[in-house]
Simulated scan of single mutants.
Amino acid sequence: MLSLKQELLRKCFESVDERIKSAENAIVSAKEASQDDTKSSAGDKYETTREMMQQEISRNEAQLYEAGKLKHALSQINIEKTSKTIQNGSIVFTDKGNFFISVSAGQFIVEEQVFFAISAVSPIGKILVGLEKGSGFRFNGKEYRITQVY
């Protein structure tokens, strides 16, 4: 199970690194666009474009900050730690899907199985944390049964 956890954690890091790179590239592009724009005879066009680019930079800086927080959260996960109850770093197998409690990073296929990387503070993560093998829970109108926790 350790190799499965390692692979899921690696995929989460890759996903977060892609978010960071995307936000950094968008910031650079917006800064270049802002600097390249020259004042036109249309008056306010220059200032409007600069303001739009500044808003774009600010939005991407916020995304970069959030991605940095996700990367830090991932670095805090100890994949060697095991517990009977679900916690950060747990792999959870249910009769309707598999989850990796880490950060919200989407869906991954590892060892020919689908896993959803979810945060412990996401709606389903809040339900799962503290449960153990054999427990049942209801989410979005569906009944789930936990078959394994690693």
Rank of each mutant, 00 (worst) to 15 (best):
F99R: 14
K45F: 01
E66L: 00
A42P: 01
S102C: 05
G97P: 00
E80N: 15
E47K: 08
Q76A: 09
T85V: 07
E18V: 02
I27M: 06
E61N: 09
T48E: 11
E112L: 00
T85A: 09
E80H: 11
V28L: 12
T38I: 08
R50A: 05
S29P: 02
S75E: 13
A62E: 15
I20D: 15
H72V: 09
A30W: 02
R50Y: 01
Y46W: 11
R50V: 08
A33V: 01
I101M: 15
S102G: 13
D37R: 04
Q107L: 08
L64Q: 15
G89S: 12
R19K: 13
E51W: 04
V110M: 11
N88E: 12
M53Q: 14
E111W: 02
E32I: 04
I109E: 15
K81E: 13
S34G: 14
S34W: 00
S83Y: 03
T38H: 15
I101L: 14
K69H: 05
S29R: 15
I79L: 11
A23T: 06
K81R: 14
G97F: 06
K71H: 10
E56A: 12
G89H: 07
S104A: 14
I79F: 07
V92Y: 05
Q35C: 01
I27V: 10
Y65S: 11
I57W: 04
E80A: 12
R50S: 05
E111A: 12
S40G: 14
H72G: 06
G68Q: 11
E80Q: 14
K84T: 07
L74S: 09
S34N: 10
N60E: 10
R59W: 02
T85M: 03
N78R: 13
R59L: 02
M53F: 00
A67F: 04
F108R: 11
I91E: 09
V28Q: 15
V103K: 10
F93Y: 15
T48L: 08
A30M: 07
D95H: 08
R59E: 07
S104V: 03
Q107C: 00
M52P: 01
R59C: 00
E111C: 04
K31S: 06
I79S: 13
G43N: 11
S58E: 15
T38F: 11
N98P: 00
V103P: 03
K45Y: 07
Q55F: 02
S34Y: 01
E47Y: 07
Q87R: 11
K45P: 05
D95C: 01
S102T: 12
A30Y: 02
T49A: 03
I109G: 07
E66F: 00
G43I: 04
I109N: 15
D44A: 02
S90D: 13
M53N: 14
A30E: 09
K81T: 07
N88T: 13
M52A: 01
G97S: 10
T82G: 07
I27D: 03
I77P: 01
K84P: 03
T49C: 00
A33I: 03
M53T: 13
S40Q: 10
E80L: 05
V92G: 04
K71P: 02
E47H: 08
K96D: 12
E66K: 14
K21A: 12
V103S: 08
R19W: 05
E56N: 10
A105V: 06
Q107D: 12
K45V: 03
L74D: 09
E112H: 10
D36K: 00
I57C: 08
